[in-house]
Amino acid sequence: MMKIKSNFKLIAITLFLGTFLYSCSSDDDGSSSNAPVISNFEYGEGSTHSTDQVAYKGSDIHIEADITAEEIVSSITLSIHAHDLTPGDDEEDWDFVQVFTDSNYMAINPTFHEHIDVPTNIPSGEYHIELLVTDELGNSTEVEGYIQILDYITLSEISIDATVARGSDMHTEFMITAVNGIHNISVDIHAHDLTPVDGEVEWDYEAVFEEGYHELTEADFHEHIDVPATAPAGEYHVIFTVEDEDGNTEEYETHIDVTE
Rank of each mutant, 00 (worst) to 15 (best):
S25L: 12
S26R: 15
D29Q: 15
G30L: 15
G30N: 15
G30F: 12
S31M: 09
S31Q: 12
S32C: 12
S32W: 12
S33V: 15
N34A: 15
P36Y: 02
V37E: 14
N40Q: 14
Y43C: 11
G44F: 10
S47D: 13
T48A: 14
T48I: 13
H49D: 14
H49I: 13
S50Y: 12
Q53S: 15
V54R: 13
V54D: 07
A55N: 05
G58T: 10
D60N: 13
I61R: 00
I63N: 08
E64H: 04
A65Q: 03
A65N: 04
A65W: 05
D66P: 09
T68E: 14
V73I: 13
V73Y: 01
I76E: 00
I76T: 04
I76F: 00
S79T: 15
H81D: 06
H81C: 02
D84L: 09
T86S: 07
P87R: 03
D89R: 05
D89G: 02
E91F: 02
D93W: 01
W94I: 07
V97P: 00
V97H: 03
V97N: 06
Q98L: 04
V99C: 05
V99R: 09
V99T: 15
F100W: 13
T101C: 01
D102W: 00
S103A: 09
S103W: 00
N104S: 11
M106Y: 02
A107V: 12
I108W: 00
I108V: 14
T111P: 00
F112S: 06
H113T: 08
H113N: 12
E114T: 05
H115S: 09
V118N: 02
V118K: 02
I122Q: 05
I122M: 01
P123W: 04
E126Q: 10
Y127F: 01
H128S: 08
E130L: 04
L131I: 07
L131Q: 06
T134I: 05
T134W: 01
E136H: 00
L137K: 11
G138Y: 02
G138T: 05
E142F: 02
E142C: 04
V143K: 14
G145H: 04
Y146T: 09
I147P: 09
I149Q: 03
I149D: 03
D151I: 09
D151E: 14
D151W: 04
D151R: 10
Y152D: 05
I153A: 06
I153K: 07
